[in-house]
Amino acid sequence: MEEILLSHGSGGKLTQNLIDEIFIKELDNEILRSKNDAAILDLEGERLAFTTDSFVINPIFFPGGNIGELAVCGTVNDLATSGAIPKYLSLSLIIEEGLPITELKQVIKSVSETAKKAGVKIVTGDTKVVAKGEADKLYINTTGVGSLSTKLNISADRAKPGDMILVNGNLGEHGIAVLSERKGLEFETIVKSDTAPLSGLVSDILEVTDQVKVLRDPTRGGLATTLNEIAEASQVGIKLQEDKLPISETVEAASQMLGLDPLYLANEGKLIVIVPEEEVEDVLEAMQKSEYGVKSAIIGQVTADEPGRVVLENNFGASRVLDMLTGEMLPRIC
């Protein structure tokens, strides 16, 4: 008997299988089929981006953020990566009996502050409480809409050989910050979650070019998994330069200790940007000037060889295939 495993929710291959074999199979339509983070809707001439996301994180407070901030950023970022300007969000809560009211207040305060920063309004919501043990403290769903300029055509299937790939800063920080709080692994770290709304960064990029091909936020499954999705959707190869990847020494060391690869660790404030080669310098400069893009870097290039594959090249001439995340990331010692 096949059953749902945690790995089905890890954002990697098993999640893809669920999407293809159950969701798209049963619910198929041309918008769903595009598999972008946000659906692009045409409402009588107005273009809208529309997306939804649920947040289940243990612990709900972690170094550098909490579930409330995450719930706003996650949805705002899924809108922003379609090139849209995020406008309105809904907020639905599933609360486990026994959650201290002070913790709820703190979370909602974060929701409010983050929404302001991202320029969105929370305009509708819902609350359900379930018995103790039937949920883990607090689950949040947010749904969002944003307006989208008709000039833009940003989608995971638009990368072409020759295009350049950028990322806006250090990878794996959210993943390590959350792991450091997990039971059985506890360690202290100076790493903080990178949770951030990316709408400002996206609009800064769109100010210098309307030629952006792909924008994606590498959340669960990390940079490696998201780049694989892009390589697959665009049927191109992707070549990364290992020494150009921004990874802090602290994340590197924590990853080594736990036997994890930072390229598969979750990010909540990172943006992968793919642009034509002639635009890359302007885009890099615009990103580096933006609040959440100071450490932006060019990390690689789209290629014609080996479509669907992401290859990492190191600084002594060897290369290896970076696959999608398979299964859940588990700390290992052996």
């Binding site: 450091s180 506890e186 360690f187 202290e188 770290t189 100076i190 790493v191 802090s248 020494e249 602290t250 590197e252 060391a253 924590a254 080594q256 200790m257």
Partner: peptide, 12 residues
């Protein structure tokens, strides 16, 4: 029997 160690900004 125990020591606190630092790994580039991680302590355990």
């Amino acid at each position: 029997k125990h020591a606190v160690v630092d790994l580039n900004g991680n302590r355990t």
